[in-house]
């Protein structure tokens, strides 16, 4: 049967969702859980935004090779988000620069946003979920 049948059309009210990633991948389960929430939320056809701040920016850095730690890499799944129509991805400039990263280091196209703009983005949302 279709997934979450009948729940997809919640009266046509589209809310602005922000998934706020602030943790590094692999060391804790936060990053994985947020990613799963993002995939699940795609079925509800909301206005989804994904932001990376603090160590969260490490989640989408190119070149993860997780074979040695026997965990699934995050990167292929982040590349799949485009197919889920999730294309509003933001990286906080200060967090990126503190860690010696540049926009080209990320596996997916992102909008680099300074901290002030990030605070406006957060404030403009209907729902903020993350870890």
């Amino acid at each position: 049967m279709p997934e979450i049948e009948g729940v997809e059309n919640t009266g046509g009210v589209i809310k602005k969702f922000l998934y706020l990633n602030s943790k590094a991948p692999y060391g804790t389960v936060y990053a994985l859980e947020v990613l799963e929430m993002i995939l699940i939320s795609a079925a509800f056809e909301q206005d989804v935004h994904v932001a990376f701040v603090d160590d969260g920016v490490y989640q989408i850095k190119r070149g993860h090779d997780t074979k040695g730690i026997e965990m699934k890499s995050f990167l292929p799944t982040y590349r799949a988000l485009e197919g889920y129509d999730i294309e509003k991805l933001y990286v906080e400039k200060e967090s990126m620069e503190e860690r010696g990263l540049r926009a080209e280091d990320f596996i997916v196209p992102v909008t680099v946003t300074n901290r002030l703009a990030m605070s406006h983005l957060i404030a403009s949302m209907d729902v903020v979920l993350g870890g």
Partner: peptide
């Protein structure tokens, strides 16, 4: 390629892109 099983909506769209709209539909 993506290490996940696609949601049905995503699968439908991806099939349409690769195999044509006559196959990429519910």
């Amino acid at each position: 390629e993506y290490q996940i099983a696609p949601a049905v909506r995503v699968l439908t769209k991806a099939v349409a892109k690769k195999l044509g709209p006559e196959k990429g539909n519910n």
